[in-house]
Write a protein that binds this DNA or RNA. Structure first.
Length: 731
DNA sequence: AGGTCGACGTTTTTT
DNA sequence: ACGTCGACCT
């Protein structure tokens, strides 16, 4: 027996690692060595003689899966390769989505899918939703595509079909159900699925094809699920269906770090695990190995304000550490400067490496000002998941070409690139071709290939279309999809050829004459590089595999550029740790976000988000908030976040930025932090001499005037200048 | 056909 | 401040 696997583990950790059979619930507090436990547990199972391929470990992100995979093989001295197929002899370590993808591909025929289906990204999904709305004769002003998409997504995560949606819902649902149905129809016409379909179709496959489920149940005797607090209903069903036979299911999570309820995560999954498995072994990991005593105290006191919570007390052996610095700033630019200055000092005077620091914010938009400041100051930084790499226009263009090569039925992609670069196939020609599709019952791709036989299309357009079709057929041969080529090309070679022959290369060369860093050309080159890496790691991979893999990765795994500060959203920060953490924008309506104002449950989620941020810090925590902040062009007065008020003052050191000056009407000597509170607040009821009674929806200061937006009970929503409008406060 | 310009509504967090 | 949409110009 290999005792080194239990080295440096505490008592509860050993329990979690060695309880091989039966259900296990591990409540893993922040920084309690969770990843170590999971890795060791997988290694332990294998050391017990369990065949690796019987082990299934599910993580929340691809990045986490990759890390875990390499840690496990390092622990065991193995060099497994995971080719993204269902069948291989390594343990399966992946996300729910990629597990479902593998399952759906493997059983494609029985499930009624062609294995070359496209996976649409959010943007394309919304485009299709919009089409569905229009096809149902509803105005897209009534149902915005993004909102509608959200509704559909939420339904899918709860495994609600369009039919059930119509049956169980109220008036709005009745009206909306056809859109959902139509959307599903469009997806299937495109031979495409969305993210949520991966889960839903898998869950339904288990229900409708017991033989599939049985096969998988027998295969995966040992199941482990990380970040269990963030699983949604579909994932819950999938996990428990798989585990039903052997009941060797180990789930790991922390209810205090549940931050994805907004996308369907159901915290009850973890809270009720013991009811699902009354014989479960429950292990609590409460010793924190990450943060100083002060940081832990701040986090603990904050999270205790949540009422919906299982009590848990984290403790640590670490030293007290310094107090957390709270910087009150004049505005967001000042804030960025203050943070930059603080971090530079840590770097220059205390030799802290840039890569040991991170800056967290609530919303992506807040990174801009911070970036500017860092850039001006010459500090290297890297944004984890900023504008998603695969979301960039030029990248999407290239991928759209590839998707059409693999899946000619993918009209979302075909429409995207049919005239990019412009080749004379305009709106009109496209409309005629689409009409033809309907009358002939054939696909746009087929129609395009024989566009010269359609009346009403200009010679030029028809020629281009036919040529493009022929071009695609050549590429399909090259990719080994169509018969005719006996040489096999790598994904990299295919992409390079397509970029050249499609004219995209020239197209983007024209748009920007120089190779700008982060410009279209540079990005395409980066894509080609990453494809080369993919080829190397997956020697026998096809273009189809490549596309599927790429669809599930939101970011071109920037594996933390060496020597750079990391910037990211609080959500992206989960699971990471840094010696120095700066959290910016601790203001009402930012953190907590304005959209959660009146919802106590969502407010608690925001508090957890704040908790997650704090607990990423090992030694030093810096927090800032700004008295003014501009958003959508308007300058708003900000109030300090209630969360800041909830933190223990004795562990905070409050600093006022010199930029505030003394002329803000607040005594500057105050150690207590005060907020710049306008006289009239959101949510306040007011009366107007002409408009009657209403509720203040928004207050913003621009220049000399304060604008208030008021929702009047009878007169509707009005924007007023506070100084002129004679508003009286009610109550 | 297609490109450009101005208006408009709109922005949380992610697989 | 960003992307989409419609109108107008090349």
């Amino acid at each position: 027996m290999d005792d080194t696997l239990l080295e440096e583990l505490n008592e509860p950790q050993i329990q979690a690692v060695t309880q091989v059979t039966g259900p296990v619930l591990v409540i893993a507090g922040a920084g309690s060595g969770k990843t170590r436990v999971i890795t060791r547990r997988i290694a332990w199972l294998i050391a017990q003689g369990i065949p690796p391929w019987q082990i299934l470990a599910i993580t929340f992100t691809n990045k986490a899966a990759g890390e875990m995979r390499s840690r496990v093989s390092r622990t065991l001295g193995h060099g497994w390769r995971d080719f993204g197929q269902l069948i291989h002899d390594a343990p399966t370590i992946c996300t729910f989505h990629s597990l479902c993808l593998r399952i759906l591909k493997h059983y494609a025929q029985s499930v009624g899918l062609k294995p070359n289906f496209s996976i649409l990204d959010v943007h394309d999904q919304q485009k299709l939703v919009k089409q569905a709305i229009e096809a149902c004769g509803l105005s897209s002003s009534q149902f915005s595509p993004s909102q509608s998409h959200g509704r559909i997504s939420a339904a899918k995560n709860k495994l609600i079909t369009p039919e059930q949606f119509a049956k169980t819902g109220g008036f709005v649902e009745q009206k909306f159900a056809p859109v959902y149905r139509k959307y599903q129809e469009l997806l299937s016409q495109n031979n495409a699925v969305d993210f949520d379909d991966l889960l839903m179709k898998t869950a339904f496959a288990f229900r409708e094809h017991p033989e599939i489920l049985q096969e998988l149940q027998e295969r995966f005797e040992y199941i482990l699920i990380d970040e269990y607090q963030d699983t949604n209903h579909a994932q819950y069903i999938i996990a428990h269906a798989l585990a039903m036979k052997h009941r060797n299911i180990c789930v790991v999570g922390d209810p205090d770090q549940s931050i994805y309820a907004w996308r369907g995560a159901d915290i009850r999954n973890i809270l009720e695990f013991e009811q699902d498995y009354p014989d479960a072994l429950v292990v609590r990991l409460e010793q924190n190995y990450r943060s100083s005593k002060r940081i832990l105290a701040i986090a603990s006191q904050l999270i205790e304000k949540n009422t919906q919570r299982k009590k848990k007390s984290l403790w640590t052996d670490k030293p007290d550490g310094p107090r957390a610095k709270v910087i009150v700033c004049a505005d967001e630019r000042d804030e960025a400067q203050q943070i930059t200055q603080q971090l530079r000092e840590l770097h220059d005077r205390h030799q802290v490496k840039w890569s040991d620091m991170a800056i967290f914010y609530r919303i992506n938009a807040m990174s801009r000002v911070m970036e500017d400041s860092l850039r001006r100051s010459g500090i290297p930084y890297e944004i984890a998941r900023g504008v998603e790499f695969y979301g960039r226009k030029e990248i999407k263009d290239v991928l759209a070409y590839l998707r059409v090569i693999v899946n000619p039925l993918d009209e979302v992609s075909l429409e995207r690139i049919i005239n990019v670069p412009t080749r004379g196939i305009g709106e009109k020609a496209l409309q005629i071709m689409k009409l033809h599709c309907i009358t002939e019952g054939s696909s746009l791709f087929e129609v395009m290939c024989s566009a010269d036989r359609i009346l009403g299309i200009s010679k030029r357009a028809a020629n281009s279309a036919v040529n493009l079709g022929a071009q695609f057929m050549r590429w399909r041969k090259m990719a080994g999809i169509e018969q005719g080529s006996d040489v096999s090309f790598t994904v990299q070679e295919i992409i390079e050829t397509v970029v050249k022959e499609s004219g995209l290369e020239e197209h983007y060369a024209k748009e920007s004459d120089v190779d700008i860093e982060g410009g279209p050309q540079a990005n395409i080159n980066e894509l080609i590089n990453s494809a080369a890496e993919f080829d190397e790691e997956n020697p026998q991979a096809t273009l189809e595999t490549y596309l599927h893999q790429v669809s599930l990765v939101s970011d071109a795994d920037h594996r933390g550029r060496e020597g750079a500060i990391t910037l990211m959203t609080l959500h992206a920060a989960k699971g990471l740790e840094f010696p120095v953490v700066a959290m910016i924008g601790l203001e009402e309506n930012i953190l907590p976000h304005e959209r959660v104002r009146d919802n106590p449950e969502q407010l608690e989620e925001e508090r957890r988000l704040c908790f997650v941020g704090i607990t990423r810090a090992q030694e030093q925590l810096i927090i800032s908030w700004a008295m003014n902040r501009s958003s959508r062009g308007l300058r708003n007065r900000q109030m300090m976040s209630q969360f800041l008020r909830e933190m223990p003052a004795e562990h905070l050191e409050i600093v006022r930025s010199p930029a505030i000056g003394g002329d803000w009407g607040y005594s500057s000597g105050d150690t207590e932090i005060e907020s710049a509170e306008p006289a009239i607040r959101r949510g306040q009821r007011v009366r107007h001499p002409a408009f009657g009674e209403g509720m203040v929806v928004d207050v913003s200061a621009t220049g000399q005037h304060t604008r208030v937006q008021v929702d009047f009970r009878h007169a509707g929503r009005k924007t007023l200048i506070l100084e002129y409008a004679r508003l009286t406060v009610i109550g």
